[in-house]
Simulated scan of single mutants.
Amino acid sequence: MGHIHHAVYGWATPAISYVVACIGALLALRSTRWALISEGRTRRNWLIFASFSLGLGIWSMHFIAMLGFSVSGVEIRYNVPLTVLSLIIAIGVVGVGLFTVGYSNRPLLALPVGGVTTGLGVAAMHYMGMAAMRLPGSLMYDHVLVWASVAIAIFAATAALWAALNIRGTLAVAAAAPVMGVAVCAMHYTGMAAISVNLDPNETPPGGVVGLQFVFPLAVGLGTYVFASALAFAVAPSKNASRPPVFTGPVAPLRR
């Protein structure tokens, strides 16, 4: 059995991953609020933006936390196609949940449906990301902790969708984002606690790339996305400006 370290760099990776999860939640909540006061293509575009923000935030939290994961005596590598596919799944399932609540006329029904769908998708993203790991041996899972992590993912997804529907105002969104960040991190580390590694010294060294090779493109991608998000919110019209003007009296005729 391999000896597992969940934070080989100390508190650096858990702290950074938590901050990234909070940023993703903050951007997603703000985008969803804009979507709910918009119509037509504008609503669709804001929901797409929210899907990318939350999905990318959850996936980035997972991958940054995985940089601190190690097994004594072996080098962990990652299968690139599976890693990218886990990102696509994260964005896609979050989008399903947000569009479900964003366009439903019955939010009491849409909320649990969207929460369960999104939670299962987030769990699938996590375990597909784990399946992308390559090391000389095999991973084994404690099924009780696996199901606990799935339950936390469903709870976190439902809470996120509820917050998107009900929380208004910048301060309220800023307060809700750290809570969502805690829920996302709890799901991840519960799933990681379910792992044990059975090493096989006779196995051929695995292919793939080491996790640190993802750091530069991940940092550039996240930085660019946050900057673009700030610009999008800066140029977005106010709630009142997005509505047509209301005239309370007759319009005076133009004078020549």
Rank of each mutant, 00 (worst) to 15 (best):
H3S: 02
I4C: 01
H5S: 12
A12R: 09
I16V: 15
S17G: 13
V20Y: 01
G24T: 10
L26K: 01
L27F: 15
T32I: 02
T32L: 03
A35C: 03
L36W: 07
I37V: 11
N45F: 08
N45Y: 11
L47W: 00
S51T: 10
S51E: 07
S51F: 06
F52Y: 08
I58D: 01
I64S: 05
A65Y: 02
M66R: 05
G68P: 09
V71P: 02
V74W: 00
N79V: 08
V80Q: 02
S86F: 02
I88A: 14
I88Q: 00
I89Y: 01
A90K: 05
I91F: 05
I91R: 06
I91L: 07
V93P: 05
V93I: 15
V94M: 14
V94T: 15
G95K: 04
V96R: 06
V96D: 00
G102C: 08
N105Y: 06
N105F: 07
L108P: 05
A110C: 12
A110Y: 09
A110F: 11
P112V: 10
V113C: 12
G114K: 08
G114Q: 04
V116H: 09
T118N: 11
L120E: 03
L120Q: 02
H126I: 07
M128Q: 06
G129V: 05
A132R: 01
R134D: 07
R134T: 10
L135A: 09
G137Q: 01
G137F: 02
L139E: 07
M140V: 12
M140A: 14
Y141I: 03
D142K: 11
V144Q: 09
W147N: 13
A148T: 14
I152P: 03
A153R: 06
I154W: 01
F155E: 00
A156Y: 07
W162I: 01
A163W: 02
N166C: 00
T170N: 10
T170M: 14
L171G: 04
A172R: 12
V173N: 04
A174I: 13
A175W: 08
A183S: 13
V184C: 01
V184I: 15
C185Y: 07
C185K: 06
A186I: 01
M187D: 02
H188Y: 11
H188D: 01
G191D: 10
G191S: 13
N198P: 00
L199D: 03
D200M: 03
D200N: 15
D200E: 08
P201F: 06
N202F: 08
E203M: 15
T204A: 06
T204M: 04
P205H: 02
P206Q: 07
V209P: 09
L212W: 10
F216N: 09
P217G: 06
P217V: 04
L218S: 12
G221N: 12
G221L: 15
G223T: 14
T224D: 06
T224L: 15
Y225G: 09
F233Y: 07
A234P: 05
S238M: 11
P244T: 10
F247Q: 13
T248L: 14
G249W: 14
P253M: 13
R255C: 04
R255W: 06
R256I: 08
